[in-house]
Design a protein around this nucleic acid. Structure first.
Lengths: 196, 196, 196, 196
DNA sequence: TATGAATGAGGCTTCATTCAT
DNA sequence: AATGAATGAAGCCTCATTCAT
């Protein structure tokens, strides 16, 4: 049918733009990227872009939302099976790190001069989920009754920063074990490394 | 003296630009800010900017360096007096959070659409110091022999994310106690909150 | 047709820019001219210029190429009919001088302070052809076996410098006769002028 | 004396600027060169430039005049001894080519894309002299009574274009012989080259 | 007279966006 | 819905020149 064909093209164009944008953001950073750059990475005409998005910010949102859509079920599953703090923590970290690791093939942004942490949509999505998770787990009593904002922040911080290392090649299980141990027992509980 | 008068003006102009830049970055985010914006926030002529800096990136660097220069002694002192892990951790967190708290009067960035965490120069400086600190403490045996990269990342992550809360108004001592306890003993060691 | 209408406009704009550029170059010299000057001599928007050319140099090239395209056939014809050195020389000089004469209505550059001979595209095109011609004629034996580079240079020099006089109003045939005689027989062969 | 010291410095500064300018013009072409560039090639302050020259054009003039001052005596001598057309022509060409050859060590301008013949001050000075010479020789009867403008142009053209070859390394005597023969007897009089 | 920072005009170019086709 | 040229605002930066010291 004409209509379904059209709609297919529409969906395809949207996808084309999103894919191009992901590449462009990764290659030159969100800040430096321009709508033009995205269009150029596409076989489409400039005007076409505006049939789908209003700005690069909107593209970014879409990218983020798409990813969130993909992670959420995974996190939900990990969370559902958790009946101890250990399971909750390791499940969450593992899911998050794994997610990052799976995507680490994709072009890495030139490590910007300093920490312009333009969190990639992937990371960002994970971060949002993390916050929600923590709130939920706290509510369910899996985690002790501590300041929720602080704990959220601490977990997010550890996940994000260690996530950078994972993105750079660190092993998912090792990272997961480390982060989990840290939250379960602090420094004393951390795996000791011996010499090199 | 001839010379000192001139040099004073020069130093003053530099300061004028830095201050304006800090304000602009805070108000609209680093990415969105343009050299022009900085100049406009200044009584100086456009060309003058380039007598001092080559780009907004360079201004940012200068801002960061200036701050680093200010924090470093404070951190050094906190560190020098530490003879236990507890002292090291709490000293570091406290210094860092306090530093952020002191500057929280300054214009806050419009919480950017999402997490374009363009770490402010203050935070960034703190972060750099943190990394160095950890390495040093590890070397001195204050901290156990754990994976240094992971620990750095975890500490930085906690400091940065909790730092955001501090910036938003959280109490420095409470935050310090929380973060320190987390690293010393994990979840079980965290202060419990009761009721709401 | 859709397409042809658009393309017509495009070609027209290109022409508009080229014409404006020719005028600007002629009026103020290539060196002094700016892209802005060219745009200003046009009803187009500044950005439009860059849809067609990357710089004034590129415009210049285009101008030159266009002219070359126009002279080449004329020179080819003059050359094809030449079966003596005399015919070759006079044909070439005549074609060249005539070409200049035809265009001498167009705005003359303010005779620049001194000899910044930014050879006009017309002259330049002629010059290039000249070099090729000479090489060809030498190869065909129309001209004696003398140093080709020197001869090229000499011919070009005479053509260019005398071309300036032609541009300034000298008669094409007189100039042609003079230049031809010079190359055929040197000073003794030159037409003598009597009185004043 | 104070005064003579000062004047010496003044003369020295002038010389410093001229030398720098010569280098800059040679290195990047007159058109592209800016006053700034000249100043930068100097240990002097920007303001100082304006104590000596009003613009780069004025510097150029000075450069040209200085050179003219140096060539004139040489040409005068060559001319004074000429009692035949041959002597006049060869003397003039030789002097001119030699002059160029002597200066060919100095940085050559990047051969500009095409013929933006920004005649170097040296060449230009020679050119001016040439014109004068011809007029004088005509007046003295050394040269036949031909159209003086045409002859000037032809001589200048040959000298300039062949001068380029000399600048590029051609032998002064060979070039002189060629040019002289051309003017004395045209193509038939030119030295024949064999094979190679 | 020398200095060199300040000035602001003005050049170059890219960009987001519109809109006729 | 797609196209892609046109637009002109706006960014970046360099420049010639002035002028207080």
């Amino acid at each position: 049918m004409d209509k379904s064909r059209r709609e297919q093209t529409k969906a395809q164009n949207r996808e084309t733009i999103l894919t191009a944008a992901r590449g462009v953001f990764a290659a030159m950073g969100f800040a430096a990227a321009s709508v033009r750059d995205i269009i150029r990475a596409t076989p489409l005409a400039s005007g076409t872009f505006y049939n789908y998005f209003k700005s690069k910010e909107e593209v970014y949102q879409a990218l983020r939302d798409d990813v969130a859509l993909a992670v959420r079920p995974q996190l939900r599953e990990a969370r559902a099976q958790a009946d101890t703090a250990e399971a909750f923590l390791s499940g969450t970290f593992r899911t998050f790190f794994r997610f990052i690791a799976e995507r680490r093939g994709e072009a890495q942004p030139a490590p910007e001069t300093s920490r312009f942490r333009m969190d990639s949509p992937e990371v960002l999505a994970g971060f949002v989920e993390l916050k929600d998770d923590i709130a939920a787990a706290s509510a369910r009593g899996l985690l002790p009754a501590v300041d929720e904002d602080f704990l959220s922040a601490a977990l997010a911080g550890v996940a994000l920063e260690m996530g950078e290392l994972v993105k750079a090649g660190a092993d998912v299980e090792t990272a997961t074990a480390f982060a989990t141990a840290l939250f379960l027992g602090g420094l004393p509980a951390l795996p000791v490394v011996t010499g090199d």
